[in-house]
Simulated assay, not measured.
Amino acid sequence: MMRRDALRTTRTRDGRKVAVWQLVHSSARILRVQFPHESFTAHRMPSRTLLPDAQPGTIVFDAYSDLADARELLPTHDDLWDALRDDYWAALLCGIDCPNQSGHSTND
Rank of each mutant, 00 (worst) to 15 (best):
R3C: 04
G15S: 04
P99L: 07
T41E: 12
D108G: 10
V33M: 09
S26A: 12
R29F: 04
H77F: 09
F40R: 01
Y64W: 11
L84G: 00
D87H: 06
I59M: 02
D79F: 10
R85K: 12
F61A: 00
R13E: 14
D108Y: 06
L80M: 08
N107Q: 15
A83Y: 03
Y64G: 06
L74H: 05
S105T: 10
V33Q: 01
A90M: 05
I96W: 12
D14Y: 11
A90V: 05
L67T: 00
W89F: 15
V60R: 03
C98W: 13
H37W: 15
L84V: 06
T49A: 15
C98E: 14
H77N: 10
M1Y: 13
V33N: 00
P99V: 04
T41R: 07
I30H: 00
A91Q: 01
N100M: 13
T41N: 07
V33K: 00
L84K: 01
D87V: 05
N107R: 15
N107T: 15
T49N: 13
T49Q: 15
T58R: 00
D5E: 11
T49F: 12
D78C: 14
F61L: 06
D66K: 01
V33A: 05
I96D: 13
M1D: 10
H37G: 13
G95A: 07
A83V: 05
W21H: 01
R3E: 08
A70G: 03
M2V: 08
L74S: 02
L51A: 03
P99F: 08
D108F: 07
C98H: 15
R85Y: 10
D97E: 14
L74Q: 03
A28N: 01
T76K: 15
E72H: 13
T10H: 01
R85W: 08
A63E: 15
M1P: 07
Q101R: 10
L73Q: 07
L7Q: 06
L84M: 08
W21N: 00
S39N: 10
H25L: 09
R71I: 03
G103T: 07
D108E: 13
A90Y: 01
H25E: 12
A42R: 02
P56Q: 10
A90C: 11
P52W: 03
N107S: 15
L67Y: 02
M45S: 10
F35D: 02
R13D: 13
D69Q: 09
R32T: 12
V24F: 06
T58W: 00
S39D: 08
A28W: 00
E38L: 11
W81E: 01
H104Y: 14
D69L: 07
R71Y: 07
E38P: 04
L84T: 03
G57E: 02
F61W: 03
A42K: 02
L51E: 03
L67M: 06
N100D: 14
S27M: 04
D53I: 05
E72N: 13
A19V: 00
L23V: 04
V24H: 04
V60M: 07
D78N: 15
L92S: 05
D108C: 09
L67E: 02
S39H: 04
P56T: 14
S47G: 10
P75T: 10
H25D: 12
T41L: 08
D53T: 13
T58M: 01
P36H: 03
L92Q: 07
S27L: 03
A63D: 15
R16N: 09
P36L: 02
Q34L: 08
G103L: 08
G95K: 06
A28D: 00
D62T: 09
P56S: 12
E38Y: 09
L73W: 08
